[in-house]
C-alpha cells in the first residue's frame, strides 16, 4: 500500500468509526485532494463531513479549533506546510494554548495535516521543512511519519487524541509503498520511536523522509566501511522518545542526526542538546548533524538537489564521528 493510500485508509476508518470526525481543507472534496490523500471520501461521507473550503488558511484552522472546542474532531488539511504559516496565529495562539490558558476547561482535539519537503522544483514558497517551528511550541503534538504503516497508525492516533496535532507528511513519500497492518485499530502511539535498522557502531536519527535516506546510508556504510549503523525514526517529535534514542547512543557511543530542515534552531540542534544533557558520558564524538542548506529552497533542479541531504552527506557525517579512532 502507498503512503497516500494508508493516510486515506486512516481517514476513512476514523470517519466510519466516529461521527464527530470531519474533514476540512482546500480542494479535499471534489478535487480529491491536491495529493489525492482524500480521494473518494466526499463520495462516501458527503458534504457535511468532507468539506471543501475557500483559500483561507488561518480561518480554516481557527474554525477547526472552535469546532474542536465544542464537540467535533476536525481534521484540517493544509496544502503545504508553507501555507500553514498563514495559520500560525490560530495554530499557536489558539490551538496550542487554549487548554492551558483557560486552566484546563477546554480541549482542542484537532489534527492539522500538511505535507512538506523539497524535490519537486516548487521553489521557495512550497518546499520547506518546518517541523522545527512546531516542535518548539508547548501544547502541540508533532508527528512526522516516514512509512505507510506509521502514516496510518499515527494519523489514527492523532485523530483519537485530545490534543492538537501537527501532522507532517512528506510530498516525496506519498507514492512510497510499504506493508500496512489491516487491523482497524492499528494505532501507533505518540512518543514511541522506531528502530528501522539495528547496529552497534553509530546511531543515525532520521526525521521524516530522512529516516529513509538514513537507512540507505546505513546500507552503504555496512557495505563500504564495515560500520553497522542503528537507524532510528522518532516518528513523533513531540512527545519525543528520548529514552530509545539515548539508549541507542549509550550502546553505539556516536550519533548523527539527519533532517531536511534548516540547521539553525533545527530538530537536530534541539536533539543534540538533549543527547548531550542525557548521555554526555557515553559519547565518543560530538553529535553530528546533517541538515538542509541554510537557504530558501531554490527552484533550479541542480541547486534544489544539493539543498537537502542525500546518502553521501550522511555517510560523510558518520565517518567524521570515527575520525579520531
Amino acid at each position: 500500500m502507498r503512503y497516500r493510500e494508508a493516510l486515506n485508509e486512516a481517514l476513512r476508518e476514523e470517519l466510519r468509526r466516529d461521527e464527530t470526525v470531519m474533514l476540512m481543507g482546500e480542494d479535499i472534496g471534489v478535487f480529491n485532494g491536491a495529493f489525492k490523500v482524500t480521494a473518494g471520501l466526499l463520495e462516501e461521507f458527503g458534504e457535511r463531513r468532507v468539506r471543501d473550503t475557500p483559500i483561507s488558511e488561518n480561518t480554516i484552522v481557527g474554525m477547526g479549533v472552535g469546532a474542536a472546542m465544542s464537540g467535533l474532531r476536525p481534521v484540517v488539511e493544509l496544502m503545504t506546510i508553507n501555507f500553514s504559516l498563514l495559520a500560525m496565529d490560530q495554530i499557536i495562539n489558539s490551538a496550542a494554548h487554549i487548554h492551558y490558558m483557560f486552566g484546563g476547561q477546554a480541549r482542542v482535539p484537532l489534527v492539522i495535516r500538511m505535507p512538506q519537503g523539497a524535490g519537486h522544483q516548487l521553489g521557495p514558497t512550497h518546499s520547506h521543512c518546518l517541523e522545527a517551528m512546531y516542535l518548539q511550541v508547548p501544547g502541540l503534538l508533532v508527528a512526522t511519519p516516514s512509512t505507510p504503516a506509521d502514516a496510518k497508525g499515527l494519523l489514527k492516533a492523532a485523530i483519537r487524541d485530545d490534543n492538537p496535532v501537527i501532522f507532517i507528511e512528506h510530498e516525496s513519500l506519498y507514492g512510497q509503498r510499504g506493508e500496512v497492518p489491516e487491523d482497524p485499530d492499528h494505532v501507533v502511539d505518540f512518543g514511541s520511536a522506531a528502530i528501522c535498522r539495528e547496529g552497534d557502531d553509530v546511531t543515525i536519527v532520521g526525521i521524516s523522509r530522512m529516516a529513509l535516506t538514513a537507512q540507505r546510508a546505513a546500507e552503504a556504510l555496512a557495505a563500504e566501511h564495515d560500520i553497522q549503523a542503528e537507524v532510528i525514526d522518532p516518528r513523533t517529535l513531540r512527545p519525543l522518545d528520548l529514552d530509545m534514542i539515548c539508549g541507542s547512543v549509550r550502546k553505539t557511543n556516536r550519533c548523527v542526526i539527519v533532517e531536511e530542515g534548516w540547521p539553525h534552531g533545527g530538530v537536530g540542534a534541539n536533539l543534540a542538546a538533549l543527547i548531550q544533557e542525557q548521555a554526555f558520558d557515553w559519547l565518543d564524538a560530538p553529535v553530528a548533524r546533517v541538515t538542509g542548506a541554510d537557504v530558501p529552497m531554490p527552484y533550479s533542479k541542480p541547486l534544489e538537489q544539493i539543498a537537502f541531504p542525500h546518502e553521501p552527506q550522511v555517510v560523510t557525517a558518520v565517518l567524521s564521528t570515527f575520525r579520531d579512532v
Partner: peptide, 17 residues
C-alpha cells in the same frame, strides 16, 4: 506544567524541557 497537554493513554515520551 498542569494542562499543557490533555494526558491520555496513547501519548507517552518526553514532552517538555
Amino acid at each position: 506544567y498542569d494542562n499543557v497537554y490533555v494526558l491520555g493513554d496513547q501519548v507517552r515520551g518526553w514532552y517538555s524541557v
